[in-house]
Simulated assay, not measured.
Amino acid sequence: MADSPRTVEIWRPHVTVACVVAEGDRYLMVEEAVNGRLVYNQPAGHLDDGESLAAAALRETLEETGWTVELQHLIGVHQWRSTEHGDAVMRFSFAARAVSHDPGRPLDTGISRALWMSRAEIAALGERLRSPLVLLSIDAWLGGQRLPLDALGYLPEGGAA
C-alpha cells in the first residue's frame, strides 16, 4: 500500500520592493498608518504576481507618492524578519531619480502624505521608521552600493530563456 501524499509546507518570504529617491540631500518618504500607528518608509510595497521587480518599484512609488521615477540602480537585496507581522521579508531596494509629480493623484489607502526628508531627519524618527531597512538602504546608497539593473532578469510567463 502506497503512502498517502503529504502536503509539504514551503517557506515563502514576503517579496517587497522599495525606492531610495534622492534629490540633493533629501529623500522621498511616505507617512503611513500601519496597525494604528503612524510610521515612515520609503515608497515600498509587495511584488504582485506576474510583475517584474522593476515594474513593482515604479508602480509602488507612483501609487504611494504621486511621483513618476526612473530606476537607476539596484542598491541591494535585504532579508529581515518583520516585527510588524513576524514573517520573513526579502526586500529589493532600488535607487531612482524623480522625473515628474502629479500632486492631484490620490495616494494609496493608508498613506497620509509623501514628503522629502534629510537622512538626519529620517534617523531621528527612530522607532517611527517602519523597519530598519529604511536607513539600511539609504546608507548602502550613500556608501556607493550600485548594482546594474540588468542584474535582475525577468521572464514573463511563457517567455524564453
Rank of each mutant, 00 (worst) to 15 (best):
D3P: 08
S4M: 13
P5Q: 14
R6K: 07
W11G: 07
W11H: 14
V21Y: 01
E23K: 15
D25Y: 06
Y27C: 01
Y27S: 01
M29Q: 02
M29C: 10
V30K: 00
E32H: 02
V34R: 12
N35L: 07
Y40L: 10
Y40G: 01
A44L: 04
A44S: 10
A44F: 02
L47R: 06
D48T: 09
A56E: 02
E60R: 12
T61Q: 04
L62H: 05
E64W: 00
E64K: 14
L74V: 06
G76Q: 05
E84P: 02
H85S: 12
G86I: 09
D87C: 15
V89C: 08
A96S: 08
A98I: 12
H101E: 11
D102I: 13
P103V: 08
P103L: 05
R105N: 14
P106Q: 14
T109H: 12
I111L: 00
S112F: 05
A114C: 13
A114Q: 10
A114L: 04
W116Q: 05
A120G: 13
L125D: 03
E127S: 09
V134P: 00
L135N: 02
S137G: 04
I138F: 03
A140G: 03
W141Q: 02
L142N: 15
G143L: 07
Q145N: 05
P148G: 13
L152T: 01
G153P: 01
G153H: 07
Y154S: 05
Y154M: 01
Y154C: 04
L155W: 14
E157C: 06
A160F: 11
